[in-house]
């Protein structure tokens, strides 16, 4: 049995995950918690948010995120890749600024408009 705090929403439910019983989750208040508890022990994932260099605009730094959570163990490697990435203004919120990061099938997208 593993105890976890769900990060699915600000409520922060205290979960119990039973590895011996097909990762059955208790203590969750919704399905997100059940899924999180299971994933957290099998393949933990996180949404990556960071900034990348922007050229030709009023700002020098563009906020971006992974469109979906990526494996937690890839966070630092993804940062390394994105630290070398530069995009040109203008950018629209939702634009893909780096496709399929580290072969995860997940895109990195801009999170605001910047001219």
């Amino acid at each position: 049995m593993t105890e976890l705090i769900c990060i699915g929403c600000p409520r922060g439910c205290h979960l119990h995950v039973d590895e011996e019983n097909d990762y059955k989750v208790t203590g969750n208040s919704c399905n997100i918690g059940a899924e999180y508890g299971r994933n957290e022990l099998i393949n933990p994932t996180r949404t990556l948010t960071t900034t990348i260099r922007l050229s030709g605009g009023n700002h020098h730094s563009l906020p971006v995120r992974s469109a979906h959570p990526i494996p937690k163990k890839l966070l630092f490697e993804a940062m390394e890749v994105l630290n070398h990435r530069e995009v040109k203004a203008p950018v629209k919120c939702g634009d893909v600024v780096y496709a399929d990061i580290l072969n995860t099938g997940i895109d990195i997208v801009a999170t605001r408009d910047l001219d």
């Binding site: 948010t49 906020p63 995120r65 919120c93 999170t111 605001r112 408009d113």
Partner: peptide
């Protein structure tokens, strides 16, 4: 849906 701060403002 879970948004970043700038997306929420957007």
């Amino acid at each position: 849906e879970e948004l970043s701060g700038p997306e929420f403002a957007h």
